[in-house]
Design a protein around this nucleic acid. Structure first.
Length: 439
RNA sequence: CGGGGCGUAGCUCAGCCUGGUAGAGUGCCUGCUUUGGGAGCAGGAAGCCGGAGGUUCGAAUCCUCUCGCCCCGACCA
């Protein structure tokens, strides 16, 4: 993509409404624009990031055996009356009336709908287990939206729902999601730590929040430092195998949010030097809720013995749009965003320092063509701007690699390759620079 | 939903107390100069001062109402 043709409205000054760093940077980098309180438009750069996050989430859901569906944003109130949540949910639910006077709502979540889909078509134990997920916009009319995209009213969420004949089956589904989440966040370059969470009225220990550490996180979290060295991507995972050992590894050490924190236990279980006390952002939540919805909605299946039992369900959410902000909270510096490669809107930013210079521009066009030919996503700054502006904007939008070509270097056949993460620069020949950023 | 704050040029803000023809910086457009970290000089375009009522000869400024946005708290993926 040529920057001269790209819609990238960057802002030098910080918009006054943005307080936290991800919100400021997303506005400044031209990723999003606020439409109204807690509701945002995604501009080209931000949308690319959102799509990358979504893609990784989808790939890992599919890998775990979940199947993608797409349910509507607008739901009928009828189902919610059956589950008892139409009244229970309160003013957070955006209620709508259609032209016929029917009560509708903009879905804040989809348990009712998915349970309805399941109950009308699944009748036998032979048809489970199943995991159905979708990635869809939700709306929760928060009293006070804040933190930009991180806590908007409208947000993109992946929610998966598992259906099993009994608790043991549900536990297997839970474990699959647990591992899928570890992989999902790791692929995005995040250290996500599963922390014990409240299970509500169901009880048991089948509820975890996945938390990433960031100074600006919304809640205090406490965990063992060894979590930061765990590597899930290095493992070869077979989702049909028993995942219990992996779960055991990841739940053996202390990790709790402040709601569940027990200072005495923390100090007893974690040696002083390994105690991590930081702030965290919740990016995922998995939990088992048993027959909470299947019972009132009559989602029953027949056991091998012919008995009708309510199906056991779990629900597994990832805040897809929130992740865009969360990743920035976890990865930025004074100059701007630092994208992990997997979610970066482009892999390489090619800076032509002097478009007016024939040789320099010829070389840049050549590099641009070669990178694109190799399938590398590249944003080519071909604008007639000053060098300082180009450097500053490229740092701001945070592409992992910057390839800088100026007349002086080009005359010697050299370009500069800068790694955004640590600012390390290398003067390289054209070919070796290219080979470094090509797959 | 309680408490607080702010709506003036694309953005950041001054002007309001004490009423008298709308301001700065930055961004944008033109030209010249400059050219490896958000340049310099000169010129230019740009605002129903959030909206509606009211007070007044006269309102960005005072009063009333209203809408929007932000912050703290309670709540939350």
């Amino acid at each position: 993509m040529r920057l001269s043709a790209y819609f990238l409205p960057t802002i030098k000054e910080t918009p006054s409404e943005a307080q936290i760093v991800s919100h400021r940077l997303m506005l400044r980098a031209g990723m999003i624009r606020q439409a109204s309180a807690g509701i945002y438009s995604w501009l080209p750069l931000g949308f690319r990031v959102l799509k990358n996050i979504e893609r990784i989430v989808r790939e890992e859901q599919d890998r775990s055996g979940a199947q993608e569906v797409l349910m509507p944003t607008i739901q009928s109130a009828d189902l919610w009356r059956q589950s008892g949540r139409y009244d229970a949910y309160g003013p957070e639910m955006l209620r709508i009336e259609d032209r016929h006077g029917r009560d509708m709502l903009y879905g804040p979540t989809n348990e009712e709908l998915i349970t309805d889909i399941f109950r009308t078509s699944v009748k036998s134990y032979r048809d489970v287990p199943k995991m159905l997920y979708h990635i869809q916009w939700k709306f929760r009319d928060e009293v006070r939206p804040r933190f930009g995209i991180m806590r908007g009213r409208e947000f993109l969420m992946k929610d998966n729902y598992s259906f099993d004949i009994d608790l043991a089956g549900a536990k297997r589904a839970y474990n699959k999601m647990f591992v899928a989440y570890l992989r999902t966040f790791a692929r995005m370059g995040l250290k996500a730590i599963p922390m014990e969470a409240d299970t509500g009225p169901i009880g048991g220990n089948l509820s975890h929040e996945f938390i990433i550490l960031a100074d600006t996180g919304e809640s205090a979290v406490y965990c063992h430092g060894d979590f930061l060295d765990f590597d899930v991507l290095g493992q070869d995972i077979d989702y049909e195998q028993d995942l219990e050992p992996i779960i055991a590894d990841w739940t053996a050490l202390y990790a709790r949010t402040d709601e569940k924190h027990d200072a005495a236990m923390f100090e007893k279980e974690v040696p002083q030097e390994n105690r991590v006390e930081k702030r965290g952002i919740e990016v995922g939540h998995i939990f088992y809720f048993g027959t909470k919805y299947s019972e009132p909605l009559g989602a029953t299946i027949a056991t091998p013995e012919g008995e009708q039992v309510p199906v056991h369900m779990g629900s597994y959410g990832i805040g897809v749009s929130r992740l865009a902000g969360a990743i920035i909270e976890a990865s930025h510096d004074e100059a701007g965003i630092i994208w992990p490669e997997a979610v970066a809107p482009f892999k390489v930013g090619l800076i032509n320092l002097k478009p007016a210079d024939g040789d320099c521009t010829t070389a840049c066009e050549d590099i641009y063509g070669k990178l694109r030919g190799a399938g590398v996503e590249v944003l080519y700054d071909d604008r007639d701007e000053r060098a300082g502006t180009k450097f500053a904007e490229m740092d701001l939008i945070g592409l992992p690699w910057q390839l800088v070509a100026g007349p002086r270097g080009i005359a010697k056949g050299m370009v500069e390759l800068k790694r955004r993460r640590d600012g390390e620069r290398e003067e390289l020949s054209l070919d070796s620079a290219l080979s470094k950023v090509m797959p």
